[in-house]
Design a protein around this nucleic acid. Sequence first.
DNA 1: TATTAAACGAGAATGATTCGCTTTTAGATT
DNA 2: AATCTAAAAGCGAATCATTCTCGTTTAATA
Lengths: 154, 154
Amino acid sequence: MTITDIRQQLSEKGLKITPQRIAVLEAIIKLNNHPSAENIIDYIRKNYPNVSTATVYKVLDALVDNELIKRVKTDKDVMRYDAILHAHHHLYCTKTDKIKDYFNDDLNHLLTNYFKKHRILDFEIADIKLQIVGKFKTPKKTAPKKRNILPKKA
Amino acid sequence: MTITDIRQQLSEKGLKITPQRIAVLEAIIKLNNHPSAENIIDYIRKNYPNVSTATVYKVLDALVDNELIKRVKTDKDVMRYDAILHAHHHLYCTKTDKIKDYFNDDLNHLLTNYFKKHRILDFEIADIKLQIVGKFKTPKKTAPKKRNILPKKA
DNA sequence: TATTAAACGAGAATGATTCGCTTTTAGATT
DNA sequence: AATCTAAAAGCGAATCATTCTCGTTTAATA
């Protein structure tokens, strides 16, 4: 996703192309880990120190309204954001609060087909998101990466 | 779900049985519409005017920690709560912000089986929630309910 | 009924998000 | 290229859901 692509996307939605909007979209794509508004602000300020907090929130709203990004809600109170690159679901780790993308087209087809056959009365589905809650397992190591010969604390 | 049941549930989890905890659980069950903390507080205060806001939040945390209720995440910023009566998913209306329960054991089995066959690498699933986003259709009326003979504005 | 850790109450504090208002700017028009 | 104007950005203050602090009360147990 290049800056040209970003400009293109904004333009397609009839949004004015501003440095702030480009910066926010770029930040979400670069950070790539469901950043909070704060994360995004910190990232942007490295290059544009005087971007207003309120502006970032306003930009985020505009981008969500125009379906260029999605909001991701956690059990904690801060909102997180996600670039819309490809339909995907989320794995929520109850231990670490990490959110990982989960791509599975096979599953998407399964769900789409399921709801094509079993419509929900009086409801028109626009999107289906799976929140898969659980824990990341620490993978077993075949060999330790590092050896710590020294004691942890002097 | 009677008060005796509620006492039983608290007791099973090793939680002290307090009037406040009973009131909160009762409120969530009675309100039955994914209430926010504010909704719950308003409801409880009708009968117990001096329940502290902080207490309600603390009780909600305790109940979530002990899996007696669930948090319902929305794209908006307030958290909502839901009694755990039976496994279910949610329909989110983008027009009205209403959240409706969606029960479908058939679908639950489908998903459970799917993930039994297709495990997610390094992730241990505890719960799967579907957020089905869309719009409630207003059902077609066979005849109009009212006729408005007068002009809309004088 | 005495003990005590857990729970509660009241209100202040926090902090993410929004508001109100002014200034700036993107994009269109001359 | 200069002008115009609605949209966007900036900035500080305001909002408000949620959390913290800490003194008081209470549920559970002996």
